[in-house]
Design a binder for these strands. Structure first.
Lengths: 124, 124
DNA sequence: CTTGACGTTGACGTCGGTGTCAACGTTTAC
DNA sequence: GTAAACGTTGACACCGACGTCAACGTCAAG
């Protein structure tokens, strides 16, 4: 399978696929013409990457999952390193939520101060 | 007051002050030597900008507050446009929180699936 | 006069994932 | 044979709020 087909089957641009390769997340044999040749498993690999990116992982975060899949596991999350990343990520999200809640409170307080009687949708 | 003093008094780099001016948020008279000359009120202006930036406003978001102060109001939040920005911002923060909560749930679900029995700190 | 602190403008680097274009080689279909 | 579709690498653009450096003008103190 060449890059165009992989792109089509995964819904990922060829640009992105090359970018992933450039960062060591994807690898491809090269045909005699220099074209990249992908295997079936790469579809799954790319899907895993996109799935993780879509929930806020960085590309670097996806590396353990990719390695996990490549080492034969059926799921990218089956390895201990992946689990650690999951947990780090959740703690990180929690932290971001805390920051946002604090910000919301601050902004709401400033609003209340400069506009007494103003209410904010969602405030109890 | 020249830019160095304003920077010192507000705790903002001269680079930032020039950047704010470049974007029309700050203005300065020019001395005969070309140096920027600031008034006392500019200290308050810059403080307002920093205060808003620190709670996640973009520079553009601060414009109504700056205009409000410059038009003579004692508080940057006293104008209706500022109030609207406050409200937009709060709704925006709420949206971000919703997104993060959804993400957290997704990630936690994936973790649970690939690591049954794994618990996440903070999960009830 | 010289030194050094301070001022000026302009421009590039940062971070991340991707779009997009250029300039070129290959394969495919007619 | 030729055009269209696809492949290759390399490089610039984006977004936002700056840091940082260059190359230069200005001004006070010794």
């Amino acid at each position: 399978m060449r890059i165009g087909e992989l792109a089509e089957r995964t819904g990922v641009s060829t640009r992105s696929l090359r970018y992933y390769e450039q960062h060591g997340l994807l690898s491809a044999r090269r045909g005699p013409n220099g074209y990249r040749e992908y295997a079936e498993e790469d579809v799954k690999l790319v899907s895993e990457i996109r799935s993780l990116l879509s929930v806020g992982f960085t590309l670097e975060d996806t590396r353990p999952f990719v390695d996990c899949l490549r080492s034969g596991h059926s799921s990218g999350g089956s390895c201990s390193e992946s689990v650690e990343v999951y947990q780090r990520k959740i703690m990180q999200i929690d932290e971001e939520i805390r920051v946002l809640l604090a910000r919301r409170a601050e902004v709401a307080a400033q609003l209340a101060q400069s506009c007494p009687g103003c209410f904010v949708r969602g405030d109890k």
